[in-house]
Design a protein around this nucleic acid. Structure first.
Lengths: 204, 204
DNA sequence: ACCTGAACACCGTTCAAGT
DNA sequence: ACCTGAACACCGTTCAAGT
């Protein structure tokens, strides 16, 4: 909260990052709708005009958070991917657990990454790359004969959607009666993805 | 925008509904983050204090919109459900198309219904009922032998998640490379759900 | 019962001025 | 180059007062 500032100096090293940290904290506490740029500035120990040296506007701060969040998601998936053992089912389960783990451990990052924002295709963020890791794993499964019919891209799209659905519905409390199955979100995701991919063997 | 008000009178019939209409319009234009209660009041032709006779605060307006949105989703799914022909696959496809159609035709309603809000289980809204229609259809499929292993609730949870994922990722532009498969969101949803349910026959 | 008008604290953003 | 201070229009919310 309070910030030690050497007398006479403006601010410690990196105000941009300090603002991002404070902003993420705020989104965590009040959600993306309750987030206030002025309060972020206050928590970073600067005036409310200071952020505008580093960000075009309030939305740009959220865009930067989304950018970082996709970077982290990509890292997390890559780590899970690199631990591949050749067992396709195990690798997919690891990817699924990594994805769901990220969402549940960093709900603020997840909300900001996948919620409505100005980030779009062609904006140089790691969203497509994260998708690519999923697609690559599925591609390997197809080549190894672990999967039936389908293109890797389409199957990755379905899986990506399924994962997002599970995480967001869990975070926003919109799973309805499915909340009472005794399954954790992680278990539900693993089971569902397994089901989806098993379907490729019998898509008559 | 401008409102005809008989001289001397406060407002036409139903200010509450007028505020909801204006608010939905606003969410449509600027998203749930850009939505301002003062502007909604202005568009309804009343002072900025007037809404507080009908809603506790700004969030309560969004809650009411979410409530209505789930009511509509339920209606739409019920209509699709009632047109059941006995063909399980066709009935599921109809439900899927109805769901996706609702999301794409009423993105503001969809965002407000499934986005973060104070609506929770036990709040008397039609979210769980909508889920129930999906679960009931799957239950019929199980009994008729159209589906393999699984409980209706778990399968409905997976399907509900998949549908939500497809719609939200489409609306927020987060499908990544899967945007370029030539499939519409509706086709993607139908194919994915078919895949998921086909998986019940081979969940070895 | 339902709405207005004025008020208050706060927010997003701009800009001249300071170091 | 980076930040402050003051300013402006706007927002959410409250409350006394009007009909």
């Amino acid at each position: 909260m309070s910030v030690e500032r050497a007398r006479g100096q403006y601010h410690h090293g990196d105000l941009r990052q300090a603002l991002l940290n404070a902003s993420l904290e705020l989104v965590q506490e009040k959600g993306t709708r309750g987030f206030s740029l002025n309060e972020a500035a206050r928590r970073a120990g600067v005036s409310s005009a200071a952020p505008y040296r580093h960000f075009a506007d309030k939305e740009a701060v959220l865009d930067a958070l989304a950018h970082d969040a996709f970077g982290r998601l990509h890292e997390v998936l890559e780590e899970a991917s690199s631990a591949a053992t050749g067992d396709f089912d195990a690798e997919m389960a690891a990817l699924v657990r990594a994805y769901v783990g990220f969402a549940l451990e960093s709900p603020a990052r997840y909300e900001v990454a996948f919620g409505p924002s100005r980030l779009r295709k062609g904006d140089d963020f790691q969203g497509p790359a994260a998708f690519g890791l999923l697609e690559a794993a599925i591609e390997r499964g197809l080549r190894a004969g672990d999967l039936g019919d389908g293109t890797a891209r389409q199957l990755a799209g379905s899986t990506w959607s399924l994962l997002h659905g599970v995480c967001e519905l869990t975070l926003n409390g919109r799973l309805g009666p499915a909340t009472e199955t005794g399954e954790t979100a992680e278990e539900m995701a693993v089971r569902s993805v397994r089901l989806l991919l098993a379907g490729t063997h019998k898509s008559a």
